[in-house]
Every structure is written in C-alpha cells, then in structure tokens.
Simulated assay, not measured.
Amino acid sequence: MRDWNARPVVVTAAITGADVTRDTNPNIPYTPEEIAESSLRSVEAGAAIVALHAREPDGTPSGRPELFQDAIGRIREKAPQAVINVSTGGADTMSTQERLGGLRAAPDMCGVETGSMNFGDGTFITSPAAGREIITRATAQNTALEVEAFEVGHVISAVRLLEEGLLPGPLRVNLVFGVPGGIDASPEALDAMIRPLPEGTFWSVTCVGRHHDRMLALALLRGADGVRTGLEDVAYIGKGVLAPSNEALVARLTGLATTLGREVATLGQARELLAIG
C-alpha cells in the first residue's frame, strides 16, 4: 500500500445538490448563472472537480438538459480544465430518464448509484437495470463514471460490476457518510467502506452534516484520493455559523489538507489521477 501522503488529494466542490434549500442556507445557488459563478470561485479556491445538480429558478430539483448545458458552458468558458461531474441521482421524485438529463450536457464525469436506500424520510430507488442504463449511456459518450456509495453493499455491488466488465475501470468511488438511512460517520464506518475496494481504486470521501470536518480530516490522514465539501453537504462553516459560500468551504478544506501534510491537486494533476483526458 502506498504512503498515505504519496499523492496529491483532489478536492471536489458540491455546489447545490437537490435537497438543501435557501430555507436551510440562503447562500445556496439555484440558477445556472449562480451555479457557474459559485463553481468558478470554488475552482479558484482549490477545487478541481465541481459536482453539479440543476435547479429550477424556485430551487426545485431539475433534470432539464438545458439547465445543465447553460451552467457547464459558463464554467468551461473560463475554467476549461476543471472536471465537471453531474449527478444522475437527481431527486427521488425523478424518473430514470429525467435523472439522465445532465448527461446530455457532455460532462467529464457523472455519478451512478449501485443500489437503493432509505434517504431521510424518502426512499431513493436505483434498480440494477437503471444503474446499468446509466453506465451504458455514460460509457457510450466517453463520460467517466463515479460510483456514489452510501453503504457497504453499494461498494460491493460496484466491485462486482467492475469484475463482470459492466462498469469500466478504473473504479472511482465516492464514499458518502452521514446520510440518514446510509452508513454512519465514524472511523469504523470508513474502514468498512474501504475494505472491499480493489487496488488502484480512486476513492473519495463525502460526509453530510455535523461530522463533516472530522470525517474529511480522517480521510486525508488515511490517504484518500479525494475529499468533498460544499453547500450540498454542509450548511455551516462553524458552530452556529452558516457557510457564506461554496468557495469558503473549499478554502477551509484546502487549508486543512495542507495542515495535515497533503498536497492539493491542480486541475492537471486531478485529470491525471482520475484518468480523464
């Protein structure tokens, strides 16, 4: 196993998500222009990946391709090397076809869920057939895939798809902690999620909620290839203090990485580590 600090760490900014609204944090971007501006500021602060959902003007989660296209076009105009990762999770009210809307904007990467789960008070369904359809569509247009894993079973399913040749390598996995209905945010949970990963996996860590900072620090010390922050994942930048922006959260995370002895990946390094041209 390589040294924990042998490679630069790739920082992702999760810009808006589908569940957090301005009632929780008034600084959440909604429009394509707001999403693009927040993404560009996050890249300037040290993020190499921007993870995108789309929203209607009132904040409703959306799968409309033109919203993704608008935001991505604005980002690429000013930061062409930034890695753009779109969600195919969308919201639990969307059909599979609606969830595929972001793929029509030709992103660099897209997420894919490899299982279903209870998600807060709702149930998020990704059937094996839906997962395979997302993989097939993304692969056909040379969009790299990142598995979004909320529990150990999702990781094991991803490894099986890789071994069966249905999921193209290299395996990229975002390990998500702290979502009600998913795995908890704890050191033991991180160990359990890492255990099934084959050698050569690019693995990153996301943590939703109050253990956000602790889990990202632990991930950095355990040698994670990537760490993620942003208003999709955490509303507060300190106890009782709402995060003013995505870039503020990114700046805090890059500072933490540097303090813990991790080099933060540049845009070019991130593309190389992710095996994205």
Rank of each mutant, 00 (worst) to 15 (best):
V176M: 09
T259N: 08
A140E: 15
Y236D: 13
F177A: 03
E56T: 06
L175K: 11
A48G: 02
L175H: 12
A248F: 12
P198H: 12
A149R: 03
G17R: 00
A140H: 12
L190N: 09
A149C: 10
T96L: 15
A36P: 03
L231F: 00
R214Y: 10
A47P: 09
E33N: 14
K239I: 13
Q141F: 09
A185H: 02
S62R: 06
R55D: 00
S204K: 14
Y30R: 04
A36K: 01
N246E: 06
R228H: 08
G59A: 02
P170H: 09
E272P: 02
R160I: 10
A82R: 01
V241C: 10
L167I: 04
T206F: 11
G120I: 08
V176K: 05
A79W: 03
A251E: 11
C110E: 07
G178W: 03
N174S: 15
W203M: 12
T16V: 10
Y236Q: 14
H154G: 10
Y30E: 02
R99S: 01
N142H: 15
A130K: 12
N85L: 09
R160T: 15
F177V: 01
W4C: 11
R7L: 14
L221K: 06
E188V: 11
S186E: 01
D70A: 13
Q141G: 13
L103Q: 00
G46L: 05
A106N: 14
P32Q: 08
R74Y: 13
G115K: 09
I194D: 10
P128H: 07
R271I: 08
I156K: 15
V83W: 04
Q69M: 09
S116L: 13
R262T: 03
D191V: 11
H211L: 14
R7H: 13
I194Y: 11
V205L: 10
P29M: 04
N25L: 02
T201D: 04
P128L: 07
L67C: 07
D225I: 00
T93R: 08
R74A: 15
E151D: 14
E232M: 10
V205Q: 08
E66M: 08
E247S: 15
